[in-house]
Amino acid sequence: MPLHPFMIELLQKLAGRPALSAGTPEDGRLMVAAGRAGLGRGPGMHHVNDVTVPSRRRRTPGRLFYPSAIPDGLILYLHGGGWVLGALDDYDTYARTLAAETNFAVLLLDYALAPEHPFPAGLDDCVDAITACIDGTVPGMTVNRPLVVAGDSAGANLATVALGKVARRKEVALQVLYYPVTDCDFGTGSYAAHGKGLPLTGRDMRWFFKHYAPSNLWASPDISPLKSNNLADMPPAIIATAEYDVLCDEGEAYAQKLRDAGVPVTLRRLDGLAHGFVRLHNLFDAPMDELRKVAAEIRATRAPQHISGD
């Protein structure tokens, strides 16, 4: 399918802008932050709290979005950004919309970023946050409601890798992975086809990996979960890839590997879209349609007692 007209227009607007990998990590963070205003506002919430989540290294900051007084569950969302970029404010609009569409509280986690905090610091934060959500020690949340762990890009990588390290992972109702990083192979067909001229380039991905961890660790299943041989008891997965994305092939290969391990998987490729579409839901129909589709799948994890609000 041809690249979506909105994506073509977006690329034209970004023409001449430095690549994410052209400067320092702080340059990249400022570049991402500069685009926040263009994403629009998210819906109003019942309330929003800044919280801290217990971790082995520190108390990890987060932001908890309540769409109603009694949400039906909790979504732990791990933002993208190549393990290097991304902040709570960059995903505020998306988290509000996801909460409103699901009536699940959404916890955005401000996990530790590389290179200041290289692998496995951010991963450890995510493992501990999932454990805290299962245990009910996240401030203001109660147990016995469905827990969904979700993320996009490097956040999706952290979500699925962290789940593999949580002893009680079968208590997680669903993992939702948008265009996940699952391998360190830069020679796939999607890297060859889409490695230049799009929002995420092959050069960007190499830059992210180099900041995240030493190259001798990249093939570890803790960084490249496609190489894991221990996926059999993972939670059911929804994986969404983008046709025009260097990560498309590895995301779909990971879906197949989960299926081969007996994990229920729903896989969707969003034709005509490029990496990063998740946060563009306010701007054109295709990402919003996908958000509403996954919201319905998340709502379906509710048990009758959660619907009644007891």
Results as ranks from 00 to 15, higher is better:
194 H>M: 06
116 E>G: 11
284 F>N: 03
76 L>D: 00
46 H>C: 01
243 E>L: 02
101 E>L: 10
106 V>I: 13
141 M>D: 00
252 E>F: 07
220 S>R: 12
212 Y>P: 04
234 M>S: 10
169 R>K: 09
12 Q>T: 13
290 E>H: 14
89 D>S: 15
95 A>T: 05
284 F>L: 04
135 D>Q: 11
223 I>Q: 03
183 D>L: 06
35 G>R: 14
38 G>A: 15
173 A>C: 08
13 K>W: 08
172 V>I: 07
240 A>P: 00
150 A>D: 05
68 S>T: 10
201 T>R: 00
90 D>L: 06
223 I>T: 03
69 A>S: 10
54 P>Q: 03
5 P>I: 09
148 V>Y: 01
130 I>K: 07
35 G>Y: 10
24 T>V: 12
110 D>E: 14
309 G>H: 13
196 K>I: 04
267 L>M: 10
89 D>I: 09
3 L>F: 11
31 M>H: 15
184 C>S: 13
269 R>T: 01
42 G>Y: 01
232 A>S: 11
265 V>E: 03
167 A>L: 14
164 G>W: 11
265 V>Q: 02
64 L>I: 09
14 L>G: 14
267 L>G: 01
290 E>L: 05
181 V>M: 14
32 V>K: 15
8 I>Q: 15
280 L>G: 00
76 L>F: 07
117 H>Y: 15
291 L>G: 08
74 L>A: 01
231 L>F: 09
186 F>N: 03
295 A>S: 14
54 P>T: 01
58 R>Y: 09
69 A>P: 02
22 A>K: 01
224 S>G: 08
263 V>M: 05
257 K>C: 07
37 A>E: 14
220 S>Q: 10
293 K>F: 11
108 L>E: 02
281 H>K: 14
189 G>Q: 08
32 V>W: 14
113 L>A: 14
115 P>E: 13
182 T>W: 01
102 T>S: 05
